[in-house]
């Protein structure tokens, strides 16, 4: 071994021993987005945010590429093949919104073994070599009941609208709602339907169960279903209870109109589709040499009576309330977690 190699080795050791210093150059790094689904307004907003933030980062010379790829069938097998292609194409990092928390682990491990940084968000993967940017969905469910308890101290009957049966997010939010109800014993869930996070499916499911329900004081939801519930309840000729909304523009518009008409009050919460851009910056920060814990938590986006007007104003018609994250936000999330 010659002197030069020894020096290089020593330099490498120093670099390893001194983590947390943003020293590396990321300009030649290529980042890919592996996305499992694009068929709703939330995912479209997510892709748009990625495109906006990614292309800006490329033109600013921060990274070399930020390409987005979406599978057509929302299948784990298809997405695994997509990840394998990305490995072959030589991407330096893969940011994933996964079709399944476990089914992609094999492909993710292959990517890690090839030296690729893997960051998952929203639909996270459990493979230990990947990073996870998770939303505390359980807390999201719990806070809905907590809010209802603050509004309705006497409690009462609740209708729960769940998401897509068998999906991890649905189970988590549901668990949070159950926890909330057990903490606030004056509430009782008298009916539960699956709205598949879609307004028309929710409208149909709620219309079907309403005739058999006693009076309800609140509706707990998962996002993308509040407007449909309101329509169904209105059509049945019932008084509209407190429906927790999910940040969709049509829900917020309905809420604002109801507020102007008779002072309707509620709460709206969901994940911002821009969480994909946070994952992008986290990948960039890992290249940059930052020490990033494997599990990061991102707060969900909450719209209250006070912030309704400004959020509604900032949200394009028919879209979802959104926040795009910056490099500084990613640094803050990372330093909070450390």
């Amino acid at each position: 071994m010659n002197i030069k190699a020894k020096l290089l080795g020593a330099a490498a050791l120093v670099a390893v021993a001194l983590p947390g210093h943003a020293i590396a150059d990321t300009t030649d790094k290529r980042i890919a987005l592996s996305n499992n689904y694009a068929g709703n307004s939330w995912r479209q907003a997510m892709l748009e945010s990625w495109e906006k933030v990614g292309s800006k980062a490329v033109s600013d010379g921060i990274v070399a590429a930020a390409d987005a790829f979406t599978t057509s069938e929302n299948q784990a097998t298809e997405q695994a093949a997509q990840i394998q292609n990305m490995i072959l194409q030589g991407y330096d990092a893969i940011v994933i919104n996964a079709a399944s928390p476990t089914a992609l682990n094999g492909a993710v491990k292959e990517a890690c073994d090839a030296g690729i940084i893997v960051v998952s968000f929203d639909g996270i993967v459990t493979e230990p070599c990947a990073w996870r940017i998770a939303v505390d969905f359980k807390e999201m469910g719990r806070q809905q009941v907590e809010y209802l308890a603050s509004r309705l101290p006497d409690g009462g009957n609740l209708l729960e609208i769940r998401g897509l049966a068998g999906v991890f997010v649905d189970d988590e939010i549901h668990a949070g709602i159950e926890q909330g109800v057990s903490e606030n014993a004056s509430f009782k869930i008298v009916g539960s339907v699956h709205g598949d996070w879609a307004q028309d499916v929710s409208q149909k499911a709620v219309a079907g169960i309403l005739p058999s329900l006693p009076e309800i004081v609140g509706v707990v939801t998962q996002g993308g279903d509040g407007y449909g519930a309101a329509q169904a309840i209105k059509a049945a000729g019932r008084d509209v209870p407190v429906i927790v909304m999910g940040n969709r523009q049509d829900e917020m518009k309905w809420w604002a109109e109801a507020r102007d008409a008779d002072g309707y009050e509620t709460l709206s919460l969901s994940i911002a589709p821009g969480v994909g851009t946070l994952a992008f910056w986290v990948a960039q920060q890992i290249f940059d040499g930052a020490e990033v814990p494997k599990d990061l938590t991102v707060p969900f986006l909450k719209v209250t009576q006070d912030t309704l007007d400004e959020t509604l104003e900032a949200t394009p018609e028919g879209s979802v309330a959104n926040v795009e994250y910056s490099q500084a936000d990613a640094k803050a999330v990372i330093s909070d977690a450390n």
Binding site: G39, N40, D196, Q199, D200, V201, Q203, Y227, G228, G318
Partner: peptide
């Protein structure tokens, strides 16, 4: 259906 449920959505036909 889109007029009934308050707008067209990308996943409206899935069911």
């Amino acid at each position: 259906l889109a007029s009934f449920s308050g707008g067209a959505a990308l996943n409206m036909g899935a069911e």
